[in-house]
Write a protein that binds this DNA or RNA. Sequence first.
DNA 1: CCTTGACCTTCCAGTGACTGGAAGCCCTAT
DNA 2: ATAGGGCTTCCAGTCACTGGAAGGTCAAGG
Lengths: 130, 130
Amino acid sequence: MNIGTAAERAGLPAKTIRYYEDIGLLRPDRQGNGYRDYSAQDVHRLRFLQRSRSLGFSVDECRQLLSLYSDKERESAEVKAIAQTKLTEVETKIAELKGLHELLSHLVAHCHGDERPDCPILDGLAGETH
Amino acid sequence: MNIGTAAERAGLPAKTIRYYEDIGLLRPDRQGNGYRDYSAQDVHRLRFLQRSRSLGFSVDECRQLLSLYSDKERESAEVKAIAQTKLTEVETKIAELKGLHELLSHLVAHCHGDERPDCPILDGLAGETH
DNA sequence: CCTTGACCTTCCAGTGACTGGAAGCCCTAT
DNA sequence: ATAGGGCTTCCAGTCACTGGAAGGTCAAGG
């Protein structure tokens, strides 16, 4: 299977797939003409990568996860620990964004948004208003 | 005022302040010995940058905001538009993270987390379970 | 058979927003 | 005199791609 098809099936740009190969995340066969040849297994790995990346795991975490995935002897505790850590990070991030949302919406609500030059948003950013 | 003091007052690393100068966000004076010399005005700008960056505005947005801030003739509508856009982005991001949180916590909850090799998290990432 | 256009290859460079580190100057205190 | 800390510049690295150039390959249409 050519890279274009694999890309479509995995939901990843071809560029990204080549990049993943560069950094050693998979090693597809080559066809006689030099084109990369993706197996169903390769596409499976790619989809795994696509999903875990979109869940916010770093490429290095994905690498760990992938190796745990292919290792039949691994303990699920390891995987759970990684996911648990990530979960905590997500919670922190949500809390931060909520604070940010409150601040921004406060600023937006108090800005009349017309042609007059004074603007509570800029004042807020400048630290003149709290 | 030396860069170290300015850094402390603005709540930014000195490295970052030099970087901001590189990309044209401010232009402090120089002392006789070649050291950068920050005025209270400069520190004000830096604090403005620190605050708006931490609110999630990109450096380019900060550049716009700063120029609107120094432009006494500007219309507050422009500023409001930028902040409004950012607010929508923040809302989207929160929604995404909530979905992610749900998925991850579901996976974590269903992983027994012991020495057995089977693990619902990896199965979930592989797309074998929904 | 030739051309066109889509797809593939490699390699190099750029993104954003810093961050780290080396080499060397400046200033103060002991 | 020397030790330390802070300052300078410049170059390189980070992360995870992304864009683009230059060129090889393949299937279809004329």
